[in-house]
């Protein structure tokens, strides 16, 4: 006897079809705003906005990789902070201020350009 299910028809919220439809309509109405926003989510702007976090992460990753790569290249070329800028200039065929600019941030780009113009 205990294997027979209990009949909960009198508590079933879907038996009163009209009342149930009202509930479903109310839910649908309440959720219509978010549904509309999702439908509008197909525009390129929203697509990019949704992917802003992964995009920023990817850009940061590329930046770190680039920095690491540049450092490696500089070390491979035998260029470091102790290398005299004259040697660098000779190797690169550039002016001393230009080589200083490449090795450090002490010389400004303006200095490099002005000096380059004077020597050539």
């Amino acid at each position: 006897m205990n294997e027979d299910p209990i009949d909960f028809t009198f508590l079933d919220p879907t038996v009163d079809a009209a009342a149930f439809e009202r509930r479903v309509s109310q839910i649908r109405f309440a959720a219509s705003g978010v549904m509309a926003r999702r439908r509008a989510g197909g525009t390129p702007f929203v697509f990019v906005a949704r992917w802003r976090a992964p995009l920023i992460a990817a850009l940061l990753l590329v930046t770190f990789i680039s920095i690491a790569l540049l450092r490696t290249v500089r070390v491979d070329a035998g260029l470091d902070a102790d290398t005299p800028s004259d040697e660098v200039a000779e190797v690169l065929g550039a002016t001393t201020p230009m080589s200083e600019l490449l090795l450090s941030t002490a010389a400004s780009p303006t200095d490099a350009l002005l000096d380059g113009g004077m020597t050539q």
């Binding site: 549904m35 926003r37 999702r38 439908r39 509008a40 989510g41 197909g42």
Partner: peptide, 9 residues
Amino acid sequence: ALRGDGDAA
């Protein structure tokens, strides 16, 4: 529903 399909919801 995540694409805004009200019928699916």
